[in-house]
């Protein structure tokens, strides 16, 4: 599975120092989340769209990710307008929709999408390894960084294991149907997946220990802050703060 599709680019944002990107994103996310009304979240959304444009990301892949994330927001649209306790109402016979509730749901949607897009534009344009690396430079506890990195690393390992098992199943002419053989096979696949990923992790842990791992990921390459990084960080931070006080 290829999770770092957006990291392979050559845009301005790809070349920035990940430390700056993490800090700016943090600022962006906080100010965007606490902003009021509809106009300011909307401007944040425009800003994040601008960042995505700057990163020159593959549009179709991006759209897929956004749709996936908005699936969760969809539920907000079902519940909030019906349950919000504020006037005025839009009377639809059986149910009453709160106008304030609709506004509230819209505001959440705008903010979520702004933050998601900004995260993709800023963080997904660096490889996971350099993000983890930047996190440890920013004095995030080593254990957290390691959990983050291994978590990411193992999503693809488990996916690889799944592909292997699926091949093994297909190679012997399996065809799913509505029968016990099919259900049993699926159960075996899940079981095998659990055991195999556990085995894999044990093996890799051994391989890490064999090479002198002592709980901390050593940093091999170091980042270098350039003028352009500072400039980008300062300008974007000012914009983010200004939008908030608009």
């Amino acid at each position: 599975m290829h999770l770092e599709v957006f990291a392979e680019g050559n845009s301005f944002l790809h070349k920035l120092d990940p430390r700056i990107k993490i800090l700016v994103l943090l600022l962006f996310a906080i100010f965007c989340a606490i902003s009021q009304n509809l106009l300011i979240p909307f401007i944040y959304l425009l800003l994040s769209i601008f960042l995505v444009w700057l990163a020159k990301l593959h549009f179709k892949t991006l759209l897929n990710r956004i749709i996936g994330a908005n699936f969760f927001i969809f539920f907000i649209w079902i519940f909030i307008p019906i349950s919000y306790q504020k006037n005025p109402y839009i009377d639809l016979g059986i149910i009453k929709l709160s106008w304030e509730g609709v506004k509230y749901a819209l505001s959440i949607t705008l903010k979520c999408n702004a933050i998601i897009l900004a995260t993709i534009a800023l963080l997904a344009t660096s490889s996971i390894f350099s993000i983890a690396h930047a996190m440890s430079h920013l004095k995030v506890p080593d254990k957290l960084v390691m959990i983050f990195f291994l978590f990411y690393r193992y999503i693809s390992v488990i996916h690889e294991e799944y592909i292997k098992i699926k091949r093994a199943v297909l190679a012997r002419g399996f065809k799913s149907g509505t029968n016990l053989h099919t259900y049993k096979t699926y159960a075996y696949i899940v079981g095998a997946l659990l055991i195999k990923s556990f085995q894999r992790s044990t093996e890799i842990y051994r391989a890490m220990l064999a090479r002198g791992f002592n709980g901390i990921f050593p940093l091999y390459e170091h980042f270098e802050l350039k003028k352009i990084d500072f400039l980008f960080g300062i300008i974007l931070s000012i914009i983010v703060i200004l939008i908030y006080f608009l």
Binding site: K164, I165, R167, A168, L170, A171, R172, G173, I189, A192
Partner: peptide, 16 residues
């Protein structure tokens, strides 16, 4: 796949 048998290089990939 039902008529041609494939042995994977990595036996772990075969058995589940």
């Amino acid at each position: 796949r039902q008529k041609i048998g494939l042995l994977f290089q990595d036996s772990d990939a075969q058995l589940f």
